[in-house]
Amino acid sequence: MKGLTRRGSGLGIGTRRPWGTAPHEDRPGRPPGSLLLALVLACASLMVLDHGADGGPVDALRSGVGTVVGPAQSVTAAAVRPLVTLPDTVRDRRTLQAQLSALEEENASLREQVRTDPYDRERLARLEGLTTTARDLGQTLVPARVVGLGPAQSFSATVTIDAGSDAGVQPDQTVVDADGLVGRVLRTTATTATVLLVVDPDSTVGGRIAETMELGFLSGRGNLGGGARLDLELVDQRLVPDRGDTVLTWGSSGAGPYVAGVPVGAVTRVYESLRDGSKRVVVDPFVDFSELDVVGVVVPSGTRGDRGVVEADGSIR
């Protein structure tokens, strides 16, 4: 009633429109203040609900949305992948190398259909070699592909992979690729999982310099591109690592989130602050985060899922 009076006095009868105007609105198409207030409060409640610890109601929503959107992402990524790799194929076709890569690609896609992809197997076996030489520790891997990348506008380094709880992937499992450590699983849906990359500023990884066994903590610097860097803070501030020293993870075996002995990167620079005696060791990650494709999730041995699992000895089940 109040709204009607207001409109009557404000606009006059002559400007009334018979359609599309709710009685409480004093101007057509413009949202009432109460709606604006309600939506702002809804945003605030979402932020408050999600700001606390994990496992809240928002995580349930996330997983629900992921279950719906994840398969769509997988399908779209699969449809787009040939187009994305097309320029390389065309450019190389003039040379003999082109034939080789085309055959390799054909080979890979054919083998992928029977889920025993020797291309993946070769890359993952290479990774196995790296992990086992670092420490006599066999790991079982679930192969997966990256199907979604968060844009830089959201200022966090996360990706979606196409393996989820159906494939045996659980939160807080280590994600690696042929070159080294990629990150850890944040949450999963049935068919997808969200991975926090080690270059994300929220990511902290226990690191060990392979040559001297010194311990430290690696934290991400954010940028994903060619300039991706990690900062290593050594526990013993007096030690100065050499340039080119390899940094491995020293995580606890079995307890997660990071398994031990995965190569992370090489020391490139050491900055020393004379004033407070602190050191900043810059580590160049082995993994090229701008071109992530095939990754492996470290799962407990004997895991069964909807796809082949690469066992520690390189066999595929």
Binding site: L46, L49, V58, R62, V69, L149, T158, T194
Partner: peptide, 21 residues
């Protein structure tokens, strides 16, 4: 809200909701 919740988003939900609103 959808952008906030769809993978691989990992920020506090509600931020894009407020911005896009």
């Amino acid at each position: 809200v959808l952008v906030d919740l769809a993978p691989p988003a990992d920020h506090v939900a509600g931020r894009w909701a407020l911005a896009l609103m």
